[in-house]
Amino acid sequence: MKKTLVLLAMAGAASVHAEPVTVYGQVNVSAQSSDEGEGRFSELKSNSSRFGLKGDYELEHGLKLVYQLEWAVDLADVSGGENITSRNQYVGLAGSFGEVRLGRHDTALKDAQGKIDLFSDYEADVKALWKGEVRASDSITYYTPTHKGFGLHLTYIMEDAADAEDAFSASLYYGDENLKNSNFYAAVSVDAEVNGYDTVRLQAQGKVSGVKLGAILHSQENIVTGAEQDGWLVSAAYPLGKTELKAQYQTLEDDKAISLGADYKAGKNTTLFAWYSSFNLDTPTPDRDYLAVGIKHKF
């Protein structure tokens, strides 16, 4: 039933002429050799492959309706009703006041990461060690207009139950997270009671002679136990013709992760990639490492 509804939605979008709709997505699959402490094995991984619909519609009084419906799809492991799952899905209004979105959305802290995490969607995604990578349901998202490069992103997450607590996330940022309109990006972000944690991050990324350098300072506190943990991340990407070489190092107290990789631009929207990630964990969880090659195509 879920698949049928999605296909009907996309078919309906394609038939709309008065209101243009953008259909977009990416397929990202890798062949992977994994060792998670019990011996090495091979597997195929679908790395946050996704598709969606988005658009906007001009209203009166300078207002604009905005919306997005996005789903994750697993090309490798999961089939049946679990194959398609929800990602950012919202409707909202934009105008001179900024933009308000109602629905399911990445929190301000998660969104503020920008492109600093060079291994996002893979095993070494920052969420492997850190809390704060939250896509919040029952949320209201607000983006202020930018002024001299500065902007504010706010998230309010409703309680959704009488015995629950609401939560907040906020980020003050400067520059362009894609490093296209500026050579520098920075943000300070906080979560308050988001999924059981208070979190603070300071992050920055810059481009020097074509080389991208990034860093994040991270602190998280478990609201129930009061346990505090700190960590940091550094990343670097070096262009070499159609190839980009990448390296990243992340910590959380004594837990560490190091990743090395290379992306080859095989076409305008197609990337061939290879990467290696290793985790050294100071917990009962065994150390683990991964080696992968794959292909990513955006449409």
Rank of each mutant, 00 (worst) to 15 (best):
H218G: 02
T251I: 14
E165F: 10
K131Q: 08
E253W: 07
D287I: 01
D121F: 06
A112P: 08
V211M: 05
R135F: 09
K246S: 04
V208A: 10
V100M: 10
L179F: 13
S96P: 00
T251E: 02
G37D: 14
G12E: 07
A161E: 14
D289F: 00
L5Y: 15
N88G: 07
A72C: 09
M10A: 11
T251C: 07
I140K: 04
Y197F: 13
A18R: 05
S48A: 15
F51Q: 03
A236H: 02
I258K: 04
N28E: 11
L281E: 03
A13V: 02
E99S: 15
N47K: 08
L63Q: 09
R40D: 09
Y143R: 13
A292C: 03
L93K: 11
S235E: 03
G81M: 08
R87I: 10
Y197W: 14
S171T: 01
G12M: 07
S48C: 06
G175Q: 03
T141F: 14
T251L: 09
A167F: 12
A13Y: 00
A11Y: 06
V6Y: 10
T251P: 03
H147Q: 12
H153P: 02
Y249T: 02
G151F: 04
G214H: 03
P239T: 05
W130K: 01
K115Q: 11
T144M: 07
G132L: 08
S137G: 03
M1H: 09
Q113I: 07
M10H: 14
T243L: 13
